[in-house]
Write a protein that binds this DNA or RNA. Structure first.
Length: 909
DNA sequence: GACTCCCGCCAAAGC
DNA sequence: GCTTTGGCGGGAGTC
């Protein structure tokens, strides 16, 4: 082992490890000289240390005391040299160094000795880990046995064994080492790393960590998470029910622990925690995880109810331990996320990109043994592999979530019935339409047809654009990897299925239309617009992300959001990784936006409530559009529910709607005028122009609009800047957005554009969160759709009224248009329900967690449209709850998961 | 004062 | 009964 280590040390490692030493050099010689690290690294032969002087003979003041020698050595040797030497002669030196140390200890006075002791930093686990890693090659030859004797290592590194355990446990979680026997481990290096990460990612997805993260974030925003206060029972419930306490260790085939002891301990072990921690990174987008969130999740798994400060602190401590080791492995990097509430420590994944688990990853065991590859076709299989028959092991999956997911999936399937590839939007759309309830279905169909007819060219253009966008996105590493079978719906579906949560996909690819209800149409839009690229859109709408955000709107949004936006800073101080770049900030904004949408409640509570109201209004306006096209049909349908409140709401809603409509029309008109002014002769050109316009997409923009559902206006706004919505509204939206979402894990995190690309995009597909994240995707979709819409509209709708019409149709076209109706319905109810916005926002997950009492009264509601849509024979639970909940719609559209959960709750209740 | 995280007690598991 | 593992949290060092 040593041999290998000596030869294999990587430059990086050297540098890292050397840093601390540099620090030492800078510090007073005394300290430096005696620092532990120095001692352990100095070459024996160079000085007296080699020959341990007899302690008693050496006088403290003596120039040739170990201390003085060390000083000389230190000053003479460069960090690199020391590192090299360390690796080279570590083994030989160890004993001598120890002796020297002993001598020092014996001969220096208390204070002196203390001073001579290595500083805290020098004793850090991270540094220790560097030393440990330096001993072994990253990729040891399988031929030779690389054994690790803990005692030996501890002695050589001059640390207590306890510390070595900490390191080994984390390495074990990554399968970089495996326990061979008592006090003995085998070094595998990074051979298994990629596989392990894939497996972890997969498991993380299955466990819906993304959702958990989002839930936590939501909660934070909603309640500032206070440990003392009445803690959200929901939270507790959600996590408590997790039964995560039984978390098990994820193993790779062939890498099972050989020692029973390893598995015997209750698994809150560092090793399991480490895996979970890694999962969080792999599953989240951006791949930044704040300690707080991670701790909460880990605690949650152990029963959130018990969450108390001490426990939380303990978790944090452990996470630091783990993080130090992972940092040494260069898998993560410490950063800081600045949020409203301050700066939070977080870590950013800097390890290798984990390829999509899309194709059921083949877990290969390697280790030293010939790689065994298993093809896993289903999630279940994967899970099985990951959890090799160890009795208790069940990964933290939240049962309720699973149920929900399944239910949802089933429902969707049923609903869609279109066994085929829902992906193909166009095709799927039709299918979906067919599925729609009469009126509703027709509307979308009409809209669709209209759109298609009117904007074939536009579509083509869109396609091109989207493709280009995709290409751009693809350029990002993450994206590329994702095997997305582009064109076919099937692939997308597949991916969806592959994903642990089939849920997500639903919103996009698989069930696009259906789910969309209100999700802001975003989904629906996406579908429409990108038929050919449905897969793309569905999967993730990276293209959106890619789009530049030069718009004024964006800026505005950004500015607003920026306040909220968090900054990520590296510890080193290269702060603001994310930063200042407007584009970046915008990107970051996206998330927030989404989230905000999600957690409408929160928003309400906040000062931005007003803004939210705007959003809501927009929503309503969306509804208006739909309503307009649909007429009061919906209303009537709802009416049946007969709730007086409903009626009342309807009335109010109507009023608002009307007002909104006017505004909309005006906006539309102005937009169109603007377009005209801008010389957009041909439809295509127009489209292009618009799209170019940064569609700016809009990342922020669309998100912003999301709620409102007015993509068109947005786009226009983008152009003109002011178009569709007033700044105020924008601001409102933005603000809302900001609050909520961010990186699921880290909270609102401003991410650099690049990061977003890489991370975000994939996130959709990959992470289970997708479901929850749908908003993001949705957002993206909407944007595109906007363009499309615009284009189509532009061409066809020359005047406000017509534009409105188109707009409406488009909405309808949302496929989900039909679906949306229900959503709208929901929206309308919103007022009635405790939380109006929730509905409006795509609060993906939020809903689920929402503590907010589901509106009690609605349960029975039949709302035809909605129910029909969502209700599936098989999924009564889900459906019913949906219909019942005012926000149900939203939930459904966004994260079906949530909906179901609620339902579950409700039903359970 | 908050953040980090070292340190080592002590109990469970293993032999 | 001794050793190995490793959970846990006090509290010190840093920022």
């Amino acid at each position: 082992m040593q041999q290998a280590g000596g030869e294999m040390g990587t430059g990086d490692k050297e540098n890292h490890s050397s840093e601390p030493y540099r620090g030492v050099l800078k510090t007073p010689l005394k300290q430096a000289a005696t620092s532990h690290s120095v001692l352990t690294e100095i070459r024996p032969d160079c000085q007296p240390l080699t020959t341990p002087p007899k302690p008693k003979e050496i006088l403290p003041a003596d120039p040739w005391t170990p201390t003085s020698n060390l000083k000389m050595l230190i000053s003479a040797a460069s960090p690199e040299i020391r590192s090299r030497e360390q690796r080279r002669e570590l083994s030989n030196t160890t004993s001598e160094v120890l002796q020297a140390k002993h001598c020092l200890q014996e001969h220096l006075s208390g204070d002196e000795y203390e001073k001579s002791q290595p500083s805290r930093k020098e004793k850090s686990l991270g540094l220790l880990c560097h030393k440990f890693l330096a001993r072994y090659p990253d990729y040891p030859s399988t031929a030779e046995n690389n054994y690790i004797c803990l005692d030996e290592v501890a002695e050589e590194l001059n640390v207590e064994r306890r510390r070595i355990y900490d390191i080994v446990n984390v390495l074990e979680s990554l399968h970089m080492v495996s326990r061979l026997a008592k006090n003995r481990y085998t070094w595998h290096g990074r051979h298994n790393l990629s596989k392990t990460l894939q497996a972890l990612k997969k498991v993380g997805e299955e466990n819906k960590y993304t959702q958990q993260i989002q839930m936590i974030k939501k909660r934070e925003y909603e309640h500032e998470f206070d440990f003392d206060g009445e803690r959200n029972e929901e939270t507790a419930r959600s996590f408590g029910s997790n039964e995560h306490s039984e978390m098990s260790f994820v193993e790779l085939p062939g890498m099972e622990f050989r020692a029973a002891s390893v598995n015997s301990r209750k698994d809150k072990s560092l090793r399991v925690m480490s895996q979970k921690f890694v999962m969080l990174f792999l599953v989240s987008t951006p791949q930044i995880v704040s300690l707080e969130v991670a701790a909460k999740i880990l605690i949650g798994e152990d029963q959130l109810e018990d969450l108390d400060k001490s426990k939380f602190k303990t978790k944090i401590r452990r996470l630091y331990d783990i993080a130090n080791v992972l940092s040494s492995l260069e898998l993560i990097k410490k950063v800081h996320v600045t949020e409203e509430r301050g700066r939070k420590p977080a870590f950013k994944w800097t390890g290798p990109e984990v390829l999509p688990s899309i194709q059921d990853t083949k877990l290969e065991t390697t280790s030293m043994t010939p790689p065994i590859s298993e093809s896993i076709t289903s999630k279940e299989q994967c899970s099985k592999n990951l959890f090799p028959s160890r009795g208790k092991q069940n990964f933290t999956r939240h049962p309720s979530l699973m149920k929900l997911v399944k239910t949802i999936e089933n429902d969707r399937r049923k609903i869609q019935s279109a066994p085929t590839s829902p992906v193909k939007i166009s095709a799927s759309t039709d299918q979906n339409l067919s599925a729609f309830p009469s009126k509703m279905a027709q509307v979308p169909a009409m809209a669709k047809h209209q759109l298609e007819g009117q904007s074939k060219k536009a579509k083509e253009m869109k396609m091109k654009l989207s493709r280009s966008a995709l290409e751009c996105n693809l350029s990002s590493p993450e994206v590329v990897p994702r095997p997305e079978p582009p064109l076919t719906a099937a692939p997308s579906q597949q991916s969806a299925l592959t994903q642990p949560l089939g849920v997500c996909p639903p919103s996009h690819s698989s069930v696009p239309p259906v789910i969309l209800p209100h999700t802001h149409s975003g989904v629906s839009y996406a579908i429409y617009l990108h038929p050919s690229q449905a897969h793309t859109v569905t999967t993730y709408s990276p293209s959106f992300m890619l789009q530049p955000l030069p718009c004024a709107n964006v800026t505005g949004i950004k500015s607003i959001n920026s306040k909220v936006l968090n900054k990520i800073t590296t510890e080193e101080g290269d702060n603001q990784i994310a930063t200042d770049d407007p584009a970046k900030s915008l990107t970051a904004t996206e998330r927030p936006t989404i989230k905000s949408e999600t957690s409408s409640q929160r928003c309400l509570k906040r000062p931005q409530a007003l803004q939210e109201n705007n959003v809501i209004k927009r929503y309503r306006s969306d509804e208006e559009s739909l309503d307009t096209s649909l007429g009061e049909s919906i209303k009537n349908e709802r009416a049946p529910s007969n709730s007086s409140q409903m009626n009342h709401e309807m009335d109010n809603f109507q009023e608002e709607r009307e007002n909104k409509t006017e505004t909309l029309d005006q906006n539309m008109a102005s937009c169109y005028d603007r377009c005209k002014r801008e010389d957009i002769p041909e439809d295509e050109d127009k489209i292009k122009t618009k799209q170019d316009i940064p569609v700016a997409f809009a990342i922020p923009a669309h998100e912003t609009f999301f709620p409102s559902g007015y993509l068109i206006p947005l786009t226009q706004c983008t152009h003109g800047n002011k178009a569709g919505f007033s700044d105020k509204e924008k601001a409102g939206i933005c603000s809302l957005q900001h609050t909520t979402y961010s990186s699921p894990i880290a909270g609102v995190i401003p991410v650099t554009a690049p990061e977003l690309k890489a991370v975000n995009i994939p996130a959709f597909h990959i992470t289970p969160l997708n479901i929850m994240l749908s908003p993001t995707s949705i957002a993206a979709a909407p944007v595109l759709s906007n363009a499309c819409l615009n284009s189509s509209n532009t061409s066809s709708a020359q005047n406000p009224s017509s534009s409105v019409l188109n707009f409406t149709l488009q909405h309808v076209g949302l496929i989900p248009a039909g679906v949306q109706v229900p959503a709208n319905t929901v929206v309308q109810r919103v007022p009635v329900s405790s939380q109006p916005e929730s509905g409006s926002h795509s609060s993906e997950n939020m809903n689920l967690q929402e503590e907010k009492p589901c509106v009690p009264k609605e349960p029975q509601e039949p709302q035809a449209a909605t129910e029909n849509f969502f209700r599936t024979p098989g999924g009564p639970n889900t459906v019913s709850s949906l219909s019942a909940n005012s926000d149900g719609t939203n939930r459904i559209s966004q994260g079906s998961l949530y909906i179901p959960q609620r339902k579950l709750e409700v039903s359970e209740d």
